[in-house]
Design a protein around this nucleic acid. Structure first.
Lengths: 348, 348
DNA sequence: AATATTTATGTAAACTGTTCCGAAATTCAT
DNA sequence: ATGAATTTCGGAACAGTTTACATAAATATT
């Protein structure tokens, strides 16, 4: 630990600590000569102000927290990338916390953060989160809070999301136009807005194509084998679908695994599309059509808005609920009669 | 911000702050009755001790930092997962910093951390890092430091790695046994131990099979298009290889992209193997043979050792240089005459 | 020249929890 | 009962930085 403190600097320079403090921060009320002397010695001794003392005094930690369900997920790691970038430019530090989709952990983490350790929190709530008291309680602490992707709409808190409903609608519509008659939706458990949004986009599209009542929703979860079992049953049942729309990447992977196992041909016998930020989706067999979320931008935008709140700037109305569009990347897994073969090399 | 402080508690209870402090930490020199009264009120008012005051006085922040080149990478995100898990159990917080493979950023970050903000640092050094003065300087601060995966061997610092040389040897040997005569190695730039280790494993295997002098090393980097261009040239050249060994996942993806573009058949015309922690590698076309690194375990182990140092426990000699083996997962991308067809469903 | 203003620096308090030292109060041993 | 030891708690210093206020000197104003 660097143990040269401001006081020692002051002693060495025969000045008051306040003078040193001000000189280092280029206060106008310090003469250039003094500033130069102070800075020279500070540089020489590699003085680093103690962040805890500073945080205590100023009541600001220059730190934010990001709470996400998991990090082994391209979406969330891209978000982290965006957040870190913005925070770094701002001179802020980023604490990372993982809930592993567990409400209890989420509550514990939020509780930990109710003490001035961070100046703001960005959270994508766990899908097992049923009640929002812990979030409400946190908001009452008046520490800036932002939701991204997995939001809690009932709360008066800025949200950065993508257009889940619209994107799901487009994905389903795409499957229908490709010739699917019976589409299963692999849904994420929980009652999050994101789950509901995607499901409702799916249902809307079915309705538009006169297939209302034909919904086929399978709830999948964190365990791969359980998911595979459910998908296996689905694909071996009487009501075997000819299209699958996976709400998250993981379920599409499970679907591919089962298809391989059961030797079901994609897209001939089954078309598959999924929300996914996996860049390698283009290399799958067959290349997987995806709805790509603007994860990096969501991270950046969320961080920018969080810092605006931290800096007590007034938010524009458009910044309270930000929706950044996702886009469809069509690849072979959904190629059908109405679509031509895509060019051989489709980026992303 | 929760503004109930220890002093206010003390005032309310008509006690001295010191008594309250001790009662909350279950000091033996406080009567049970007093402890109960203090804790009851603390719970009622949801008192959270100010972490900065505590850190300042005790000179410990209960925070560690993880510095990695990037987070959009399965290896590093799995490492983070392991680290977070251990830290959480220890009651520590985790700061994350990304260098984006840039030595300057790495230096800046390390400089930031020379001030007691964290109690320890775990780093996987950037591949553009040529000099290690910033790391040496940091070590001199006597803040616990740990290297993982991308280490700097010349320094007297604990390292947690995988057996890069051995794993690369096995991968190359596997290609050779599968019938490859000319194997190209897509190397990561820089002079890191990890690059050298993998390259030397590759060369060792060639030598063992009487192919010394036939090395074909292509340096790849962060830019996809540049990499594809290099691979394209390689695969269209006179000395076109029949096997490619990618030092990192990204380069294997680039290779697949070029193969698709040039309509080169894997594994018939070209066998491909890569270091990779991508679980979806099994779904590639064709399924990609990989060397899977024990990323989660590396993260856990590195964190455990870091905490041992923080707690000033003596390290065993075996804990100073920990090597956790990687394992080969053979899939269709390297199937050749000496290998049978793998079972249809290979996990991972 | 006398007062007002500006400039440059020092003094001391504040931020909040921890801890050293000492003082009652209680218990124990003799 | 007396002294010693133990238990329980308070007082005050302390960690390092920032800042409101004060002070002194220098400059400006009338």
């Amino acid at each position: 630990m660097n143990n040269v403190t401001l006081k020692k600097l002051a002693e060495e320079l025969k000045m008051a600590p306040s003078t040193v403090s001000r000189a280092l921060r280029d206060s106008h009320e310090i003469s250039q000569e003094t500033k130069d002397r102070v800075k020279a010695l500070a540089a020489k001794l590699d003085f680093q102000p103690n962040p805890h003392a500073s945080s205590l005094r100023k009541n600001q930690s220059r730190t934010i927290a990001v709470i996400i369900p998991e990090i082994q997920n391209n979406f969330f790691s891209q978000v982290m990338n965006g957040v870190e970038e913005v925070a770094r430019q701002k001179g802020y530090h980023v604490l990372i916390y993982l809930t592993h989709e567990d409400q209890k952990r989420e509550m514990d983490i939020l509780h930990l953060l109710r003490s001035g350790r961070v100046e703001g929190v960005m959270i994508s709530v766990s899908n097992t989160t049923k009640s929002f008291e812990h979030l409400e309680a946190y908001r009452k602490e008046e520490i800036p809070l932002i939701f991204f992707d997995r939001v809690c709409e009932s709360m008066e808190v800025p949200c950065i999301t993508t257009d889940d409903t619209g994107a799901a609608f487009k994905a389903t519509e795409h499957l229908l136009k490709a010739g699917c008659k019976k589409i299963a939706f692999l849904s994420m458990a929980g009652n999050l807005s994101i789950s509901c949004g995607r499901k409702s986009g799916y249902i809307k599209a079915l309705t538009k194509f006169g297939l209302s009542g034909n919904e086929l929703v399978i709830e999948c979860g964190p365990d791969d084998e359980t998911n595979r079992q459910k998908i296996r049953e689905l694909l071996q049942s009487e009501q075997r679908p000819d299209g699958i729309f996976a709400a998250v990447e993981k379920f599409a992977v499970n679907t591919y695994e089962v298809c391989k196992e059961l030797e079901i041909k994609v897209p001939q016998q089954l078309k598959v599309i999924s929300f996914s930020n996996l860049s390698a989706a283009a290399l799958f067999n067959p290349p997987l059509s995806t709805i790509v979320q603007p994860a990096y931008d969501i991270g950046r935008e969320a961080a920018n808005i969080l810092f605006k709140i931290i800096d007590k700037k007034k938010l524009l109305n458009t910044e309270k609920k930000v929706v950044i569009p996702s886009h469809l990347v069509i690849r072979e897994s959904t190629i059908g009669k109405h679509y031509p073969k895509p060019s051989v090399f489709l980026k992303q």
